[in-house]
């Protein structure tokens, strides 16, 4: 495996339901991702893009196939090791932000590193908060923030542990166009500034085009995989 390959997906299949009533969500999907790539995964509703993201993030198990992140087969890990792996190597961003309502902006961002008992680098944290544009909101609770601001907190939370991979599932799905642009811009900045590998699931072609590479999924299969420089 080449050194700059951060993610390797081999024959990934996910089938829901039983024999009589089965749905193939993902059908033998294989692809590689290089470190620092910004990838969009697009497809129609029900095409399997979110399922792919869940399998890559280790929150769901494949029916068959493997996912290697930094050369580790994540689905062969024990539940506890997988938790630790997710904490350290994967940042998840959701459509509905999923912040803890009882914790303020700073606490929500710090949550993964605190769960990992990491020492906090205040300078780095402040830098991140400034990049996120949340400098004057650190002590606010999620319900005191706009949708865009909440999503920025979620991005901060995903970035805090310098994960190998950021998986964003429709992060702009719940936002107005202005906020959506800001979020995508932020993801691009983190991709450039921190050399962060990002996989973004979206059905918005305009947003998808902002990525270096666009993977199109249909009926659980990759039907198109285009890198920008190939275009």
């Amino acid at each position: 495996m080449s050194e700059d390959i951060i993610l390797k997906c081999e024959n990934l299949t996910k089938i829901y339901g039983n024999e009589e009533n089965k749905t193939i969500a993902l059908d033998n999907v294989s692809f590689n991702v290089k470190r620092g790539q910004f990838i969009s995964i697009i497809g129609a509703s029900g095409s399997g893009k979110s399922t792919l993201l869940h399998l890559l993030g280790g929150v769901d198990k494949p029916t068959s196939g493997s996912v290697f992140i930094n050369n580790i087969d994540i689905h062969s890990l024990t539940e506890n090791d997988l938790s630790a792996f997710r904490r350290k190597e994967i940042g998840l961003i959701y459509q509905f932000y999923n912040l803890l309502p009882i914790m303020n902006v700073k606490e929500n961002i710090l949550l993964p590193s605190q769960l990992d008992k990491r020492k906090i680098d205040e300078k780095e944290l402040n830098d991140l908060i400034n990049v996120l544009g949340l400098g004057d909101r650190v002590t606010h609770l999620p319900n005191q923030l706009s949708g865009g601001q909440q999503q920025r907190v979620a991005i901060g939370r995903a970035l805090i542990n310098h994960p190998a991979l950021i998986l964003a599932d429709e992060p702009t799905g719940n936002l107005d166009s202005k906020s959506s642009e800001e979020i995508v811009e932020l993801l691009k900045v983190s991709n450039k500034k921190y050399n962060q590998t990002i996989l973004l699931v979206t059905h918005d072609e305009k947003i998808a085009k902002e990525a270096d590479r666009i993977i199109t999924i249909k009926d659980g299969k990759i039907v198109k995989d285009i890198e920008k420089n190939e275009e």
């Binding site: 993030g57 929150v59 539940e79 506890n80 938790s83 630790a84 792996f85 997710r86 904490r87 350290k88 994967i90 998840l92 999923n98 912040l99 803890l100 309502p101 949550l111 993964p112 769960l115 990992d116 939370r157």
Partner: peptide, 16 residues
Amino acid sequence: MKEFGTLISIGANSKQ
């Protein structure tokens, strides 16, 4: 449950 789900998704283990 949503909170616990979020915590688990960002890497909280069973012990935590």
